[in-house]
């Protein structure tokens, strides 16, 4: 790790103020992706603003079907929250399977989405849930928030403060983990909600796309006809624009999208 200056922010406003100081400032949430990247010297911020001690970023609010998760809420907290489990168990289940227990104790939802690792789990949930990302400056629809590999709509100094969504009638997440890193090699979040009073099926795929998380029109079409695992059987997902590496070819990932979608749907219906 290169030398750096550490600053601990006491509030969101304080963090924004601190961020104006350095030349290459990064916000530090749980640090579960950032610190490993810094250790291998792939990331070299001059200054780190620690958001880990800001009370206003923590906590989960559930009101009816409306869910708000503070950006500083850890994966373990999301996984364990009973109110959330009652309205949207798919998100609890997703959080319970991010990384390992020690990672879940530190990693946060805000950090995960702000980093937008193409193999992270939360982006699939947010996109499929048509969630809103709340920042200190504005509200951004998930579809507009994730803009590419490790790229988001966040501007310099902007901080994610919360994630908001309406719990759908049904949702499920299933991922195929990279055998080595255990990150999602292909993860699919299916959700059956309502839009403009009509059924609205959304299927988002993480870990597979060359440009990060994306919606699978093919599977959405199949599930819109019938929200059932069997409906996904035989659907062809194009391998174009899917990643290819030593662990998975694009063709394999395309096949996994279908298999994971099937299993996620089965979970959503269970």
């Amino acid at each position: 790790m290169y030398s750096l200056n550490y600053h601990r922010a006491s509030s969101v406003a304080d963090a924004v103020k601190l961020a104006k100081k350095g030349d290459d400032v990064k916000y530090l949430a749980g640090g579960m992706t950032l610190i490993p990247a810094m250790k291998t010297r792939l990331s070299a911020p001059s200054d780190l603003i620690d958001l880990g001690h800001i009370g206003e970023l923590k906590g989960i609010k559930v009101s009816g079907k409306n869910v708000t998760i503070g950006a500083g809420t850890t994966h373990a907290e999301v996984a364990a929250n009973e109110k959330l489990k009652a309205v949207c168990p798919a998100v609890s289940d997703l959080a319970a399977h991010i990384g390992d227990p020690a990672v879940r104790h530190k990693g946060t939802i805000g950090g995960s989405i702000a980093n937008n690792d193409p193999a992270a789990d939360y982006p699939a949930a947010l996109l499929a849930l048509d969630a809103t990302v709340v920042t200190n400056k504005r509200e951004i629809a998930a579809a507009k928030f994730f803009t590419g590999l490790f790229e988001t709509a966040l501007k310099d100094g902007e901080i994610v403060t919360a994630v908001r969504f309406t719990a759908p009638a049904k949702a499920g997440y299933e991922k195929f983990r990279n055998p080595a890193s255990r990150y999602a090699m292909t993860g699919v979040f299916v959700a059956k909600g309502k839009a403009n009073g009509k059924d609205d099926v959304r299927v988002a795929v993480t870990g597979a796309g060359e440009n990060g998380v994306f919606r699978s029109k093919e599977i959405e079409a199949a599930l819109s006809k019938k929200f059932d695992a069997a409906a996904v059987e035989g659907v062809k997902v194009p391998s174009k624009n899917l990643m290819s590496d030593i662990h998975a070819s694009a063709d394999y990932r395309a096949a996994l999208v279908v298999v994971m979608a099937k299993r996620a749907t089965a979970k959503a219906n269970s």
Binding site: Y6, R8, G31, A76, A102, K106
Partner: peptide, 18 residues
């Protein structure tokens, strides 16, 4: 792995000052 405030964390992925 150590426990920080009662929870298991990876002490190689946390700054001392943090």
């Amino acid at each position: 792995v150590v426990h920080v405030d009662g929870k298991a964390v990876k002490s190689c992925t946390m700054l001392a000052v943090q």
